[in-house]
Nucleic acid binder design. Sequence first.
DNA 1: ATCTCTATTTTTAGTTC
DNA 2: TGAACTAAAAATAGAGA
Lengths: 198, 198
Amino acid sequence: MVHEKKTRGRQKIDIVKIENEQNLQVTFCKRHSGLFKKASELCTLTGSEVALVVAYCFGSPSVNAIIDRFESQTPKSIDSSNLLLEAHRKINVQHLNNELTILQNHFETEKKRGKTLNQQRKVGETRHRWEAPIKELNLEQLEQFNLALLELQKNVKSELRKIIFEHSNQIGNLGQLNPYGIDLFGINAREISPSVFY
Amino acid sequence: MVHEKKTRGRQKIDIVKIENEQNLQVTFCKRHSGLFKKASELCTLTGSEVALVVAYCFGSPSVNAIIDRFESQTPKSIDSSNLLLEAHRKINVQHLNNELTILQNHFETEKKRGKTLNQQRKVGETRHRWEAPIKELNLEQLEQFNLALLELQKNVKSELRKIIFEHSNQIGNLGQLNPYGIDLFGINAREISPSVFY
DNA sequence: ATCTCTATTTTTAGTTC
DNA sequence: TGAACTAAAAATAGAGA
């Protein structure tokens, strides 16, 4: 019996910019989630720190679809300028906020752990003399990164408001609007072994 | 003829912290490079922006091996404190510098492109009215991120100097020293289509 | 640490539902 | 859109030099 193959399976592709907009969207979606999964796994497996920021935008047609869908879900009572504002806020900033909150919780946890380490050191463990500076360096770096992300988020918000404000004076040009999306992924420092801090 | 398998091939593993130090190192190495490759591919394929920071440290035994190897390659004429300084600088900061230079070149290119866009806009292309703010937002964010990275690099350097200085007064404790490595990967903004900027 | 090698697992391109 | 499917491509665990 001859078995007809149902699909051609995964095809080899060159790593060059995808020109077909449809393919690009699908590939972005798949590889984007794949990348975050890999990053997450690296963190978990090796206890390393990974900060990953992916920024992208959608082409106008799919943007319209998203906005349309959002509008159809929103009560009509909200006035239209507010509606657009909220739509963009939700689409662009909500996820960012969520991720950032998680990230900040990680930082808090690490900060506490850093303090504990500091206290332990005061007890007189000379064995740990090299750990503390690196620990602190690490925290410092992470906090700077965190601050940069906060700043970035602030800018996203204010720029979005600006854009949407301009836009509200110009309804009908929706196709030219570019929603902006940012995903964040952050994992904190961790011990590799009781005597090697990270 | 019975074919004896040479290896068991890839084995399924749970995504939990690897406790065996040796396995951890190898896995980190493999997955670290795999992650950067994936990030690079996502950028190229979809023209998205990705910033990836991976920070990790080595356990003491392999650290000794690295330092030993470095020392055996270095002319004996250099005095030992300088030697250690240089060793750590090379190991920890060189790659960072290289990556950062590439990153900065990308930023420069993008900044120029942003200016060109600005000039074009002044010519009177109303069609592009939404592109510029997002372009600028993007650049601004990227520059902030870049600044954060520069700051981070500065801290790595100064902390390393501090650690190495302390260490040079305390030879014989090499096993407690934790080299610190940071890899950076950054890709710039790009057009998705002539009318959608990123 | 890296590189190699192999046999698997995992990811994903293309398609269909 | 978007989730599910398939089969091929790609990544990688384990072992080695």
